[in-house]
C-alpha cells in the first residue's frame, strides 16, 4: 500500500499557495532534493492553474482533487477535475522561439516531470498524472 495523501481544493487561485506548501511537504517526505522539490511544486501549480483557467474557464468553487502517492521508485501526483476536457493532442509544449505571453505551463510541466499522462472525459473526470522518479535510497 503506497503512502497516499489526498488534497481537495476548489478552483480559486488563492488556494494555489496553500497547495504549493502541501506539495512541498509531500516532496520532502518522498525524499526529493530541495531543487527538484521546488520544480515539482511548480509543475503541480501549473497543472492546477491550467485546470482553473481552461477546464473551469475561471469559474471558482469547482472541485480539484490532488492525489499524491509516494511509491518505491517514484512520486505520482494525479490531478482530477470535472471541467471541460482538453484535447489530449493539445497538451504539448509550444515553440519557445515564439516569444509571447501564455502557453508556457505545459512546457514547464513536461520539462520538470519524468512522466506526464492526460486522460480526459473519464467517469471520474479529467485526469492528469504527473510522475517524478525518486533518487535511489542508500
Amino acid at each position: 500500500m503506497p503512502n497516499t495523501i489526498k488534497l481537495h481544493i476548489t478552483s480559486d487561485p488563492k488556494f494555489l499557495r496553500v497547495l504549493r506548501a502541501a506539495i512541498g511537504q509531500v516532496c520532502s517526505l518522498a525524499g526529493l532534493p530541495r531543487r527538484q522539490s521546488s520544480m515539482v511544486v511548480l509543475a503541480v501549480d501549473e497543472a492546477c492553474s491550467n485546470v482553473i483557467k481552461h477546464a473551469y474557464k475561471g469559474k471558482s468553487g469547482q472541485p480539484i482533487i490532488i492525489i499524491c502517492s509516494i511509491l518505491p521508485t517514484k512520486l505520482e501526483i494525479t490531478i482530477l477535475d470535472h471541467g471541460e476536457p482538453a484535447d489530449a493532442k493539445m497538451i504539448k509544449s509550444r515553440r519557445l522561439d515564439d516569444i509571447r505571453p501564455g502557453g508556457l505551463g505545459i512546457h514547464l510541466i513536461k520539462s520538470v516531470m519524468d512522466e506526464v499522462c492526460y486522460i480526459n472525459g473519464t467517469e471520474a473526470g479529467n485526469r492528469l498524472i504527473l510522475c517524478k522518479n525518486l533518487p535511489e535510497r542508500k
Partner: peptide
C-alpha cells in the same frame, strides 16, 4: 516564487 503567469506578465 514565480509561475508561468508571472513570466507571461513580464513578457
Amino acid at each position: 516564487y514565480m509561475d508561468s503567469s508571472g513570466v507571461a506578465t513580464l513578457i
